[in-house]
Amino acid sequence: MKHHQHLDLNYLNTMAADDEELKKELMVMLLDEMGRCLPEMRRFWNAEQWFSLQQLCHHTKSTLIYCGNQIVIQANAALEEGLKDNSKKKALLAHLEKMETFFPIIMQELKVELEQV
């Protein structure tokens, strides 16, 4: 397994154990989920659909566990919590932007990893 700067597949590997097929399948699903949820988040943000955004964050929480990146995990959690508390939107935008910054890098590392499996 290649060491990546932002991707941490330890939890995914723990759950997959020695099942290489499952590992690959999970990585593909993870890539797909990450690719879909971020644009959706931005769309909800722009449309000010806060409840839908909060629900998506909750869903994404489970996804991000498998990518293992604490920065996006925490940003997503902070966004979800902030939406519950109706915090100032400006502060919340920073979390979304943080995810928008890191998602492509993590996904790139994931693609590299996937090619090697």
């Binding site: 759950m15 997959a16 154990a17 099942d19 499952l22 399948e25 999970l26 699903m29 993870l30 989920e33 869903h59 489970s62 996804t63 498998y66």
Partner: peptide, 16 residues
């Protein structure tokens, strides 16, 4: 579980 990855993972570890 509505999350497909969670569902797959749980199913696999239970069957294992």
């Amino acid at each position: 579980d509505d999350h497909n990855i969670n569902r797959l993972v749980a199913q696999k570890i239970l069957e294992r």
